[in-house]
Design a protein around this nucleic acid. Sequence first.
DNA 1: ATCTATGGTTTTTTT
DNA 2: AACCATAGAT
Length: 723
Amino acid sequence: MSAPLWDNPPMNTTLLSGLNPPQLQAVTLPRQSALILAGAGSGKTRVLTTRIAYLISTGAVSPHGILAVTFTNKAAKEMVTRLSAMLPINTRGMWIGTFHGLCNRLLRAHYREAALPQTFQILDSGDQLSAIKRIMKALEIDDEKYPPREMQNFISGSKEQGLRAHDVEAFDPYTRRKVDVYAEYDAQCQREGVVDFSELLLRCFELLSRNESLRTHYQERFHHILVDEFQDTNPLQYQWLKLLAGQHNALFAVGDDDQSIYAFRGANVGNMKDLLRDFKVEAVIKLEQNYRSHGNILDAANALISNNRNRLGKNLWTSEQGGEKLRVYEAPTDVEEANFIVGEIRQLKTEGLKLTEMALLYRSNAQSRVLEHALVSAGLSYRVYGGLRFFERQEIKHALAYLRLMQNTDDDNALLRIINYPTRGIGARSIEQIQDSAKMHGTTLWDAAARAGGKVSAFVGLIEAMRSATSALPLPEIMEHVLVHSGLIEHYQSEKGAKKREAEERLENLKELVTAATLFVHENEDDSLTSFLTHASLEAGEHQAGDQDDALHLMTVHAAKGLEFNAVFITGLEENLFPHQNSQRVDGGLDEERRLMYVAITRARRRLYMSFAQRRMLNGQVSYGAPSSFLKELPEDLLQWLSAREAPRNPFASFGYSAPAAPVQHSVSSTGWRTGQRVMHLKFGEGVITGVEGSGTDGRVQVNFKHAGSKWLALEYAKLTAL
DNA sequence: ATCTATGGTTTTTTT
DNA sequence: AACCATAGAT
């Protein structure tokens, strides 16, 4: 253990300074279970990390005795970073991580007891779905009647409740069939030595509940368990925590019921009330002072969330009263909404606000397209968070599948993915034969393939050759070898025509994969292939380069939780989009959407824009939407409408309320040009109007050209064509 | 066996 | 608009 730092606790002056009374109370609480109700922007992360630092530096516990759980890798990383800044300790060996990451760690350490192969691999949701499809085909189940996606939700959902197939109550034949698939799926995963996300948790839970000595060992070790975003825990996670806490340990849970936005994934806010009961919690501390947002923003958020029932009750306040009003903009179309936003961003930029200080939020990933397009035309740099992650790209998954198969030949999923990619003359017919043979002999596909001849045995030979050629190589070189000898590189290089560009990007990504491997080897003690593959599954999205650039943040509202920005744009505030249509089918769905809106609003420190469009492209066709009902739930006197309300273009739509007309911004000026208009110039080429001055032919316009940059042009001379 | 065209379906949010 | 699965063409 590290030297006792608790001889001279300097934290009373530095560590604890600046905490408000409830924060201080939470941080210095004696060892007992507690629930900290921490509102948005109330210093939740600070309290959590400071408490850990406090416990360690006062000698209450050694770093070894702490278990800190978060939901995202980002949050875990943040905690570690802050902690190392507060304390001169090595955070490396500490158990700080996500539920999935920690369970993985535990299962790796006790793989035998958990009945898993040492190098078990993790299926991401895509892998899981294809595994399920495979099972369904084998069981000859009609995928019209049983959509694979639904099956996936059923299986994951059951696991998140802590239910194995035989635990699920099936009263009707329909459900019984699903249970069959669940059971068969689990058996298949076991055969192949793979686990899905929820299996990590369930397997870990079962391991601890069955194995008393192991359970006791960890219970005695983790004297203090701290959980972030407790409102997002599902029943299984809660049971897992209970198990580790045992009778004697303290569970320090931090959460905000108003920010519970993952019920669709099995999260159960009810866990907060259960915690109070199960742990006989006496310390409920509310952090209600918000240090983030101006008063108007907070007032709007509070007004909105007050429409929800069954809240634990919290009153968020700030000493920063007032501030700007919330700006609301109604655009005719999604494209014009995007152009408006671009205009505002430019303005904010000239006022000195950095792009990184601004965020563009939307309800669903598909909405980023239009926004991105406008940003590209305007030459503004941005960064999309979430969406398709690096390790989820098909070329990356293909490359990794080779590695997985090389390491674990039982992995049928991996084999099927690459046996004919790139194409090597093994078609559907051959694959079927292999599957039949495997079934008949009761072996894995790999063994069946090894028995076959011709092209199939050539494939088997290829994998084996790669394995022996790379067995002694460091990770990045293994990677390179596989990329070349699998034929992936050549395959993408030979792509031409329409797919050329796409293939080039894929090649770039493959190169990037080698870089990622190199980086991984440098940063991790355990630089084994298994470890890297685990990293790829568990931290698929964390791979973000160029964070230091001044770039705008684009992300879903979900992804924005926990973040804050000086200026925030909430876009697509239309009924059926936000709140989302599908939420109406679910019990309590609207309340969850409202909490989501609450999260969105409370991301903003100073300025908040909310916009919507009368018309937008949705699923490939034009749709007309009414303004989001959430806008009506915001106090009118906190809002500033930026657009005059035009008559709705849709004769069938009638928006039930009107707002005071405000000066129109970005309207067509007397020059005949308006900002956001795409134009063509004979010499400079394509561009977008970003500013208009003067009137008639005396005026001039500012155009940002794709290639020639930004220029002011006198209308009298410049020949501009509208695009 | 593989490529291409077609048509039907789809997307909410994610560790 | 993009993705997928399947049928038909090569």
